[in-house]
Amino acid sequence: MKRIILIGRAECGKTTLTQALRGHKLQYHKTQAVNRHDVVIDTPGEYAENRELARALILYSYEADVIALMLSATEDYSLFSPNIAAGATRPVIGIVTQIDQENARPDRAEAWLRLAGCKMVFHVSAFTGDGIEELLTYLDASSAADENV
């Protein structure tokens, strides 16, 4: 299975998605430092929100096979710059989280992720399980075509 690094602002669902991908019981846990869980690298949201800390994400991304930019479907804005994925040396995918929320706008979040350069975007809900299997299948695939994502 490919190792994935999850990058996004605080409370977008990185740790909850980590728990769902690993088949663990979902419980809130504030990530204070970069955590490596088997094939998932869970990063604190503050790293993506702070210019100085963001440099660490570049270094940690070298430990991953896939970079995931994450946005909640309830976001009012995207912190990812247009075409930011172009500078990555790994495939960059988008993950829209919290699609089960009442005020969710997954279409808007996906559009922002595509603007950031994500060619492949997954819609997931860690609570309902929607999209989790598709994401796991992608991570498990060993196709050389994935390298062009």
Results as ranks from 00 to 15, higher is better:
G8E: 04
S142N: 14
Q101K: 15
Y60D: 04
Y62C: 05
R51S: 08
L59T: 15
K14T: 05
P82R: 09
K25S: 13
V39S: 15
V34E: 01
R114P: 07
E133W: 00
M70E: 01
I67E: 07
G129M: 05
N50W: 10
K25C: 09
A144C: 06
V34P: 00
Y28E: 12
A20Q: 06
N103M: 05
R22Q: 15
A141F: 05
R114N: 13
D130H: 12
V66S: 05
T89C: 08
L79Q: 07
L139A: 07
G117P: 05
A126H: 05
Q98C: 07
H123Y: 11
I95H: 00
A104N: 14
E49Y: 04
A86D: 02
P106V: 11
E11D: 14
A145P: 06
E63R: 10
T43S: 09
D42F: 03
S72T: 03
E133H: 03
T16Q: 13
Y138W: 09
V34A: 01
A56R: 11
A10K: 14
L115C: 11
L59R: 14
Q98K: 15
D100R: 02
T15W: 02
V34C: 07
L79F: 12
L79C: 09
A144N: 15
E133G: 02
D140M: 10
A126D: 08
V149K: 10
E49W: 03
I84A: 03
R55K: 13
Q98I: 06
L139Y: 02
V40Y: 02
V124T: 15
S61P: 10
L115M: 13
A33E: 15
D42I: 01
L21G: 00
N35W: 02
E49G: 10
I84K: 01
I99M: 04
G23P: 03
V149L: 10
Y47K: 12
V96K: 00
T31Y: 00
N148R: 14
L57I: 04
D76H: 09
D140P: 04
R114L: 06
A10T: 15
Y28D: 12
R22L: 15
A88R: 00
L53R: 12
L79P: 07
Y62G: 06
T15R: 11
I58P: 01
Q27P: 04
E46S: 08
D42G: 03
I5E: 01
A73E: 05
W112T: 06
E46W: 11
A144L: 10
N83Q: 14
L17Q: 02
E133Q: 13
T137F: 02
T16H: 08
T18I: 12
D130T: 12
T97V: 04
T97S: 07
L26Y: 10
Y60I: 03
E11L: 08
Q19L: 13
T137I: 09
L17P: 02
E134N: 07
A33W: 05
E49S: 15
